[in-house]
């Protein structure tokens, strides 16, 4: 058991190391990404460029530069941005993380609840008009670009119907921390939550329905019915319980990617200063310290989420527990 945990930890560190080296090389080896030129500005004299090159240590060998960067990112945590007036990047990421977590966490609650409802109802009403309508709606959800949906949601709730009773409660765009009050926090996020959830409701609802329909042909579902259980109980305790295993593995991956910056389009459209937007800013400015910090944060999240998914696997599937 301890050996497995240690091995897992070792793998994690190795993966994080690999990603950091990769990102470092990509943004140093790509033409046009020379950080000296960026910091120095457009019409800097050769002397200034040389001074900056020395000051920031760009004239040192790459491995030393890499180690120096890692040291300032993880140990001293005073890594400063190249462009943004030398803003410290670690606190910047720490400020952005709760925004992204709030956005993705709330959306996840919505999409898991609604998609389980939709998937189960559609599977129970298999072949009916209701089933087809729900699955078609799911397909529409998958087909909508999220940034456009956000724009339209803004148009409706911020402008066209903002004065109507339905959306008069919608506050202006932006993020309010949870410490400022539950309602202030939630009301700013409800529309972004729903917008982000639409794609995943469609996706998960369809996947769950397909899984449940496949499960309903299984022998154990027939056994459960032969036991004289109610249809609902058969569906929930045998069908859904078994299908949840794939559901959870999908969820772990998606959740980690979104928390790791995958929700940037939603963040951009709704003016939320989350990690995705921060990464995007870093990329646009080729701000290597910022990119490095956000990517490492994202990688940590993906790796941690994978570990959590594995844990859930153990809880949900006894066959995995026995290493089968």
């Amino acid at each position: 058991m301890i050996g497995a945990v240690l091995r897992r930890l070792g793998q994690t560190v190795l993966v994080l190391f690999g990603i950091s080296v990769l990102v470092f090389l990509v943004f140093f080896a790509t033409p046009g990404a020379d950080p000296t030129a960026r910091i120095a500005g457009r019409n800097a004299s050769p002397e200034t460029v040389a001074a900056i090159r020395h000051q920031y240590g760009f004239d040192r060998p790459l491995p030393i530069q890499y180690l120096h960067l890692m040291d300032r990112l993880f140990i001293t945590r005073d890594l400063a941005s190249y462009v943004d007036h030398g803003e410290k990047v670690v606190p910047e990421v720490a400020r952005a993380a709760p925004v992204t977590l709030s956005l993705v966490g709330g959306a996840a609650v919505i999409w898991v609840t609604v998609s389980i409802l939709i998937g189960t109802i559609a599977a129970a009403a298999r072949g009916s008009v209701l089933d087809r309508a729900l699955m078609m709606a799911g397909l529409v959800g998958i087909s909508i670009p999220v940034f456009w949906l956000g724009e339209v949601a803004n148009l409706i709730t911020q402008s066209r119907f903002h004065t109507s009773w339905m959306f008069s409660w919608v506050p202006p765009l932006g993020y309010v921390p949870l410490q400022d009050g539950l309602w202030a926090w939630a009301s700013h996020l409800i529309i972004p939550w729903c917008t982000l959830a639409v794609l995943f409701i469609g996706l998960y609802g369809r996947v769950l329905r397909a899984d449940l329909v496949a499960a309903s042909g299984e022998d154990f579902m027939r056994t459960a019915r032969a036991k004289g259980l109610s249809e609902t109980r058969v569906m929930l305790f045998h069908g859904l319980r078994t299908s949840l295993i794939t559901f959870v593995s999908l969820f772990g991956l998606d959740f980690a990617q979104l928390v790791g910056g995958g929700a940037l389009l939603t963040e951009v459209v709704f003016g939320l200063g989350g990690v995705g937007r921060l990464t995007y800013q870093g990329l646009v400015n080729l701000d290597l310290p910022l990119i490095m910090a956000t990517v490492m944060y994202s990688a940590v999240f993906v790796v941690v989420a994978n570990a959590v998914v594995d844990l859930f696997y153990l809880l949900l599937d006894p066959r995995v527990r026995d290493g089968r």
Binding site: S143, E151, V152, L155, S159
Partner: peptide, 23 residues
């Protein structure tokens, strides 16, 4: 978006229709 929403709505609809048809 708030004054002339059709500029953004029309291409979005085109995307939705195309992607839906492909799916």
């Amino acid at each position: 978006i708030y004054t002339r929403p059709w500029v953004a709505i029309a291409p979005g609809l085109a995307i939705v229709i195309t992607v839906l048809a492909l799916n």
